[in-house]
Amino acid sequence: MHRDPLTIGTQTFTSRLFTGTGKFSAKAQIAEMLARSGSEMITVALRRIDMGAGTENILNFIPKTVTLLPNTSGARTAQEAVRIARIAREAGCGRFIKIEVITDSKYLMPDNWETLKATEILAKEDFVVLPYVLPDLPLARRLEAAGAAAVMPLGAPIGSNRGLETRALIALLIENCRVPVVVDAGLGRPSHAAAAMEMGADAVLVNTAIATAQDPAAMGHAFALAVSAGRMAFKAKLSEESATARASSPLTGFLDSPPQKSPQ
């Protein structure tokens, strides 16, 4: 296998499966899942600590080699997201931040407008900003211009497991974005992840489907395989398409030029 790394910000990833730490029934499962899936980036949320219960520190279950992607969940405005991001950076776990601003508690749709504002601020503060958004091409362009390191369109509502409901819109992002496109949310099955990769997504982020599986480690592994397969399929197709494109002179262009003498 030749290397096919993904670079976000200044960091390079071998695995194109990003995972999350939410909804696991035991924290120990996270470590096992990371080991089996090979995921190199995982999301975490920031909360007030519970002074009463001596809960185990989640960081103890995440190897140093895995990049932490703190999210801004709980934020309802750009300002709140910015505050959470700054706090997260002080925790000493790197510059990555997933901006997640949700004002709709019924469908958990991200607020693209607030997300853009937060991105503009945080990118200037040298964060590696990964905004979680509804797939919207003009917005994605603005996010890029604002300095986003990637765009993370949702496939379906968070936790819905419904798959690539926004496929056609994501396809536009994939076709047009210069920064990596990471499909986040709604991917309920490995086949969903494979489909996203096959259509050219640079990575996927999967949390619920893995964490709530009966065997999260095995499911993490299954998603990893699906992501690799989808990526491989995309690349295989890509080379075919580029072969066509290489014919910069069109296939029938020879009909317009004067006939050449046969060689020899």
């Binding site: 999350g20 949320a45 909360r47 989640i58 925790a91 949390n207």
Partner: peptide, 28 residues
Amino acid sequence: RIVKQEKWPDIRLQDGDHLELLSFVGGG
């Protein structure tokens, strides 16, 4: 105001101070 870890021993607490202690938890 966020206080960097290396400054923790230097910040003297006073009556009526407001403290927020935050850490990472599971989240997607």
